[in-house]
């Protein structure tokens, strides 16, 4: 394309009209991908609070946190996998599997802390298998993880016999890993926030994050400069599965029960929806973990708010689906506007 290099840009930047600091911050905020989803979330809170005054009560916020925290942890891993250009359908099944690994390890005499590590290790193994099959055997990850989804589900059902089990951790483990504090899911909230912060940091500030973006943004180019794309993909599959395992164990402690039918594709789709609503592109190369966190919160607000407003469970999914689509359309519109009007 014979486009001229935009010579005018340096000049226009050299003579700015020195906007106020607040203006700069405001503009930076509107330019960030997380802005639109945050605004959508606030609008939804206002709407639901006006229709159902119980919405902002402590017990309801606790409900919301429980839902959003689990999905946000799953979404953080899913974001990493999606950014590097892959997809993980199996993470919801790892969520169900890990508590059983932990439970049986504890039954066999392993202390809980170590049993939790073993549960996460089980997740890491699943991620490793997902990654190796995808990268080394060149199977699209959509197919790979579709296969492992069923395998893990079957495995969990087999080892559990299809029945839930009840772990009995000591109060310390219970309090640290998911148990509510004074009726409020404090530890779960803290874990979700910490994991979101950690993964956003990894994505934005570390070499691993940069190489993840590079792998998803330009696979060939990334390999040409010598980035180990196979390892980046395998590693992110492992991170995603480990987070899935961790979220599963948190929920298991919270409700003092491990259910072989918990999580599954429902949680996986909610995590993916959170990622996408939060601004992660399914085509890879671009995404944010904070956005996915906000996406999970918005999903939580939607399901919780509709439940409070008395919308029936049948109609709820239709409304949720519509809400996802509308959010996405608005998001795409906004980012187009940003790209066109922003320039920088």
């Amino acid at each position: 394309m014979p486009t001229e290099p935009p010579k005018s840009i340096p000049e226009s930047q050299a003579t700015p009209k020195r906007p106020s600091r607040l203006g700069v911050l405001g503009r930076a905020f509107l330019h960030s991908r997380e802005a639109s989803i945050l605004i959508a979330g606030i609008l939804l809170v206002i709407y639901f609070q006006s229709t159902a005054p119980a919405f902002l009560s402590w017990s309801n916020i606790a409900n919301l946190v429980v839902f959003a925290a689990t999905i946000a942890i799953l979404a953080a891993g899913e974001v990493m996998v999606i950014i590097c250009g892959e997809f993980d359908l199996s993470v919801g099944m790892v969520y169900a599997l890990a508590p059983f690994v932990m439970f049986y390890a504890h039954e066999a005499g392993v202390p809980y802390v170590l049993a939790i590590v073993l549960g996460m290790a089980a997740g890491a193994v699943v991620g490793l298998i997902n990654g190796l099959i995808t990268v080394k055997l060149h199977i699209p990850s959509f197919i790979t993880t579709l296969g492992t989804l069923f395998i893990i589900n079957g495995f969990t059902l087999t080892i559990s016999g299809g029945f839930p089990v009840q772990p009995h951790p000591d109060p310390f483990i219970f309090a640290v890993f998911g148990g509510p504090l004074g009726g409020f899911p404090v530890s779960q909230l803290l874990w979700a926030v910490a994991i979101t912060a950690l993964f956003q940091f990894i994505l934005v500030k570390t070499r691993w994050g940069l190489h993840t973006v590079a792998t998803g943004g330009n696979l060939l180019g990334a390999s040409e400069v010598g980035i180990k794309i196979a390892w980046i993909k395998i590693g992110n599959f492992m991170l995603c599965s480990v987070l899935g395992a961790f979220a599963g164990m948190l929920d298991c402690f919270r409700i003092s029960s491990a259910d072989p039918l918990a999580g599954g594709t429902d949680y996986m789709f909610r995590a993916t929806a959170s990622a996408v609503i939060g601004g992660t592109l399914l085509t890879g190369g671009s995404g944010t973990v904070i956005g996915a966190f906000l996406g999970a919160v918005v999903l939580g607000i939607l399901s919780d708010g509709f439940t409070l407003s008395g919308v029936s469970a049948y109609t709820f999914d239709m409304i949720l689906g519509g809400a996802i689509l509308i959010t996405m359309v608005i998001n795409v519109r906004l980012s187009k506007l940003r790209a066109a009007g922003g320039g920088k």
Binding site: R207, L210, H211, V213, A214, G217, N218, L220, G221, A222, E224, V225, G226, I227, G285, S286
Partner: peptide, 22 residues
Amino acid sequence: VYQDLALINEVNVYRNMFLQKE
């Protein structure tokens, strides 16, 4: 310097300059 330039569109100029040699 490959035909596709091995630049990452979604990443800024200076990080691209140091890609893999960060």
